[in-house]
Structure formats: C-alpha cells, structure tokens
C-alpha cells in the first residue's frame, strides 16, 4: 500500500442529528492518478473530502495520508492541511479578504513563511491559474469564474501535494470549464495529485484516470472510466447517465464498427475513425 497517497478504512460519519453521511467507506487513492468522485447531491462527496484534510473526524474508522494514520491534534493537522488542500464549491464562502493578493497570501502566511516567499508564492499561484492581472483587484469586483480561479490559487499558494476540488465545474461556462481542466492537467503534469467531485459524467469520462461512484454515503463502485461507464445497471442505480461519446461508440459497435481503444474525447474518436478508414 506504499503507493497510496490517501486511504480510508471503514469510515463512518454522522452529522449532529444522526444524519449518516458516510456509511462505511473504504478507499485507497493511488498516487499520480487523476481521480473523479461522482454521485448525486447528498451522497457524501463533500463530507468525504473534509475527512481527507482532517476538518471532520470520522465517528469510526481510519484515514491515512501517505500511509500515516491521521491524528487529530494541532501540529499534525497543520502539517496535513499544508499537504492536502481543499478548494470549496462556493468561492463566495471561501474568499474572505478584500483583495486578491491578500486572499491568496492567507494560506502561505499561516505556514509561517517570510514575506518575500509569501509574495513569490502568491504570484506563482496566480500565474498558474492565469489571473496575475487581478492581483490587486478587490475580491468583490470579480466574476464568478475569476473567483473560482482565485479560490484555486488560494490553495495552490500553500504548495500542497494533493489538491481536492469540490465540484469545481459547477456554474462555470464551457469556456471557463475548459480552462479549468487545462489548469488541472498542468498541475497533474507538475506532479500534483488532483481529486475532484462532479455530476458531469462527460467530464469524468474524458478527464479521470480512475473514478469512484458514491451513493447514500457508500462507494457504489470504483474503477477505470471505460469500465465504470459501460456498466448500465450501475449507472441506472446511481442516477448517472452514460457519456454521450460512449453511447455513440456503442451504437457504432452494434453496427459492426471496431474500436482499437474506446475513445475518451472527440479528437481520439476522430483518430479511431481515420485509423479505421485507412485500414480498409
């Protein structure tokens, strides 16, 4: 299990009032994989994420980071949160400072870094999300998409090993969503571990290396997207839809079309078609 970056064993969690949010979760997230967690509203995705950086403490069960069990005292949590950053769904409840510069500096300041280093990190983090020009802008002047990027920079400035994003694509227009995925891919290339939750099966299918499907506080299924999204019964049980591209490929297959590899994006799909055409 040494290649697992985050792991959960038999985690149960209840909110006050006895609402069970996590109902016996065990999962082992492999290092270097792009992870997507899918599931309907209220299936426990956000609660799950808050366990990974120790904000919530399981009622029973254990959480591990890099093979070490998470302990709930200050210095351990401080170290954990330095390495596992969470970007929250609503930037308006995450951004608290008056200006973008101050906002992004909050995390690295808490790490106790010297001012020059904080400034360098803020600049790098803003550059990584492509919003350097907004540095001295007041937070309330920004559009939703810009606030979203600031909220990602917030966490990037702490230079975490793992970046967890709760529904990063929610409310974003297609252009901003595309840009977001490019930013995340770039982070993955730089060796960051990216975990996100989404309702969007197309996004999960095209982007993720490995997906978890949650339902009612349980992991209903996990696997590589190509297999998970072929499981019609699972998709029906968890209120998910088959990705459109996969649906089209299935129809083509029924018509006697052969795919070397199931395409995950339109360019890949085109390649398969061309390959097939030159083959004949």
């Amino acid at each position: 299990m040494s290649d697992c970056i985050l792991e959960m064993r038999d985690v149960f969690f209840e909110y006050s009032g006895g609402i069970r949010a996590l109902d016996g979760i065990s999962m082992a997230i492999e290092k270097g994989k792009k992870i997507a967690v899918l599931g309907p509203n209220g299936s426990g995705k956000s609660t799950l994420f808050l366990h990974f950086n120790g904000i919530l403490k399981p009622k029973s069960g254990k959480v591990f980071y890099r093979g070490r069990e998470i302990r709930y005292f200050r210095s351990f949590l401080m170290d954990l949160r330095k390495n596992v950053g969470v970007v929250f769904q609503d930037p308006d409840t995450q951004l608290f400072a008056g200006s973008v510069f101050q906002e992004v500096s909050f995390g690295p300041m808490n790490l106790g870094l010297p001012a020059a280093e904080v400034e360098k990190r803020v600049k790098e983090a803003l550059k990584a999300t492509g919003i350097e020009e907004l540095m001295h802008r007041p937070t309330h002047f920004l559009s939703f998409g810009q606030k979203k990027r600031v909220s990602i920079s917030d966490v990037l400035a702490m230079n975490p090993e793992v970046l967890i994003l709760d529904e990063p694509a929610a409310y974003l227009d297609p252009g901003h969503e595309q840009k977001l995925l490019e930013i995340l891919d770039e982070l993955c290339r730089k060796g960051k571990q990216v975990i996100l939750s989404t309702h969007d099966v197309e996004l999960a299918y095209a982007w993720a290396d490995y997906v978890y499907i949650m339902k009612a506080g349980k992991i209903a299924a996990e696997g590589i997207p190509a297999e998970i999204f072929q499981n019609d019964k699972l998709l029906a049980d968890t209120d998910l839809r088959k990705p459109l591209l996969l649906e089209i490929c299935d129809i083509l297959k029924q018509k006697g079309f052969f795919f070397n590899k199931m395409p995950r994006s339109i360019p890949e799909f085109k390649d398969e078609l061309l390959f097939r055409a030159t083959d004949e």
């Binding site: 808050l50 904000i55 401080m78 929250f88 608290f96 510069f101 101050q102 909050f106 001295h136």
Partner: peptide, 17 residues
C-alpha cells in the same frame, strides 16, 4: 471550514501589498 482548511488558528494573517 474553508479558513480552517488553510490553517486558520484564530488570526487572519494576510500579506499586505
């Protein structure tokens, strides 16, 4: 919660320009 996730310990330290 989101402040806590970024290491909040009771004081809002930010770097000013």
């Amino acid at each position: 919660i989101s402040l806590e996730a970024r290491g909040y310990d009771g004081e809002l330290r930010v770097l000013t320009r």
